[in-house]
């Protein structure tokens, strides 16, 4: 979250992906960095132990959520 907001502050579009158990933490960092409504992508946990076909499904879900974030004015 910190990296994503830092990119935005440097004028680079970014989309942060976090897994569900980290939602509270992501909101907390966004609030701390002065952008409490900063949108982010959220997918199911975990990532590391998933099979490739499961990761593909998560990636597609992340892509769907990323489009409105990256194309917003």
């Amino acid at each position: 979250m910190h990296d994503g907001i830092s990119f935005e502050q440097l004028g680079k579009r970014a989309a942060v992906i976090c897994t569900e158990p980290f939602e509270v933490t992501a909101h907390n960092i966004a609030r701390t960095m002065g952008l409490p409504d900063y949108p982010f992508i959220m997918v199911e946990h975990p990532i590391g132990s998933r099979r490739a076909d499961e990761i593909r499904i998560l990636a597609e879900e992340a892509y769907r959520q990323a489009l409105p974030i990256l194309t917003a004015a």
């Binding site: 158990p21 980290f22 509270v24 933490t25 907390n28 960092i29 701390t32």
Partner: peptide, 10 residues
């Protein structure tokens, strides 16, 4: 540093 369990300490 506000490293709080469940919020910033995971």
């Amino acid at each position: 540093f506000r490293m709080l369990p469940g919020i910033s300490d995971k």
